[in-house]
Structures are given as C-alpha cells and as structure tokens.
Nucleic acid binder design. Sequence first.
DNA 1: CTAGGAGCTAGAGCCGGCTCTAGGTCAACC
DNA 2: GGTTGACCTAGAGCCGGCTCTAGCTCCTAG
Lengths: 151, 151
Amino acid sequence: MAEVTAGLSIGQVAERTGLSVHALRFYEQQGVFVSPIRRGVGGRRSYSEDDVDWLTVCIILRASGMPLPALRRYADLVRAGAGNEEERLALLKEHHGRVTTQLGRLTQCLDLITFKVGVYEDLLDRYAAGRDRPRPSVGGDVPASRPGTSA
Amino acid sequence: MAEVTAGLSIGQVAERTGLSVHALRFYEQQGVFVSPIRRGVGGRRSYSEDDVDWLTVCIILRASGMPLPALRRYADLVRAGAGNEEERLALLKEHHGRVTTQLGRLTQCLDLITFKVGVYEDLLDRYAAGRDRPRPSVGGDVPASRPGTSA
DNA sequence: CTAGGAGCTAGAGCCGGCTCTAGGTCAACC
DNA sequence: GGTTGACCTAGAGCCGGCTCTAGCTCCTAG
C-alpha cells in the first residue's frame, strides 16, 4: 500500500518547513533530531516523513521560545524510548508554563500599546477637528523633561 | 509644592527597573532616551522621574519584542517634538500588529503543547491503571522512525 | 590617610541562533 | 568533457542585546 518513501532531500525539507538548509544541518548537529538522518548516495541527507513530522513539532516549540538545548533534551528522552514519559511530561509542562507566562506578559504589553495608540488617535482627531493646531508638548509622550509631570 | 527632585543614580534606576547598570548605559548610548540624561557631580548620571517613566515604557516595548533601533526611532520622534504624531502612531500601530500576530502564533503553539501534555498524561494514567506496562514505541512521540506513521 | 563603594569611559567578550564561506563530491545535461 | 546545480564538511562570521573588564575619579567612613 505505502510505497517505500523515497526520502526528502535537505532542499525539499527546507522548502516545506521554511527553515534554511543551514539551519537544518545546524539542528542536526545540535542533536534535535530523534533518529539520525539517513544518508543516500554521496552521503546526502534523506529525511523521512517522521523526521519532518518531528521537525514541525520542533519548529513550534522553537517558535514558542524553547531553546535548542531543551529541544535536544526532549529529543534525547524520546530517543531513549519508552520509560521516561514522566520526564517528557515534566519538560513539556515546564515549557507550557513558560509559554503561558509569556502570553500573559505579552497581553499586558499589548494593552499598553493599544492604549497609546488610542491616545495618539484621539490627539490626531483633535488636531484635525481644531483646524490644525498641534499644541507643543502635548501627547502621549512628553518631548522634553519637565520638573514634575507624568502620565 | 513639588521639591526639585534630586534625581536618581544609575544604581537606583537599575534597582527599580530591573535593568542592569550596564544595560542602562547601553540604552543611553543607543539613543533610546528622549532627553539626554543629566549629569551630576563627577559626571554621574542623574535620572529624572520622566526618564524613568519613559524607561518603563521602553521596557514594555522591549518585552513585546520591539528591537532597539525601533525604540530609538520612536525616541527620535518624541524628541523632535510635536508635529510628527502620525509617524509615532504608525510606529505604534505597526508594533501593535506584530504583537498581535505574535500572540496568535504563541496561542497556537500553546495549543499544541497543551495537547501533547494531555497525551502524555493519559499515557501515564494508563500505565498506572494497567499495573506498569510501558509498552514500547507508544506515546505522543515515536522513538525511532518507522515507514509510515504519524500523529 | 586609606580603604570601600559607586560611578565613569572605551572597548572587549559572550550567548543564542543561525548564516555564510571555502573547498570539495557527485550526477545530469549540452 | 565542461558546466551547472544540489549537496557535503568544517569552521568562520554575524547580529542583537547585553555583560564584563580595565583603569580611572570621586566621596565617605573609620
């Protein structure tokens, strides 16, 4: 039913993951792959579908801020096979926590930015309504330092 | 009414912002401050409340991924004074968009991580229920590469 | 009067994560 | 049979963002 999948070249994997060939080799060298990438004629890398699947998980973990060493630790655990699931779970949970925290922080930041955008929009509205009178030193941000003002 | 605020030392600012004194000098050199930091006796930096206020905004923008050059551009605009509010707004809006995008991405990542945590929790539950039988090659992640499996 | 401690400048160093280069192999095409 | 193009390895380089060092100046306390 399933053909003996030919394996993808590094270029193909780069194309479909969005990573550069450099990054792919770098990741391999950093040990983030679970199984060693097979080699074809002339020592060329031949990626299996599983490799690519794993890679896409890695990409998501990276995108959520997991550092390469952690990714390698995870790969090490999976490579070691069944029996260390608690450790994998712990690793994932820890990362989950960090991502959650980061989401919270980012949301707070977004609130401030949204607020400041609002302030400037209002300001510009008022400029427009009041026939172009950009009053100096007014806005969400004070141009120069004055003794005791804040916003 | 307001005393002529004495100004804070770099150490004090470091302490209350969480930045290092190194980072503070670095930021200054990078031009992220709106007004030049005044100097006291012996050339020591003396930060005003406004400086610190601005800094806290900067910290939030940094935390949301705004690169230092963008921060400097923003500071440049504010320093230039009234009249460029559209540019400031554009800059903020652009950053707002990037943060929103990043929030979306991060949320997606979190979904995957949550899913995987769930998979491993179920797995461990089943191990526990089934009197310790860690069946090889089962889990959210496949230890070795097999012809045609995915999850 | 000397020893600390905080600050100063200029510049080097570091870390994570790629990215690029040099120099080479191989297969395929014209 | 020469050129192109994709790949290989090893290792250098780069970028952002700090962080640290060296060598100095002050001020204050003991």
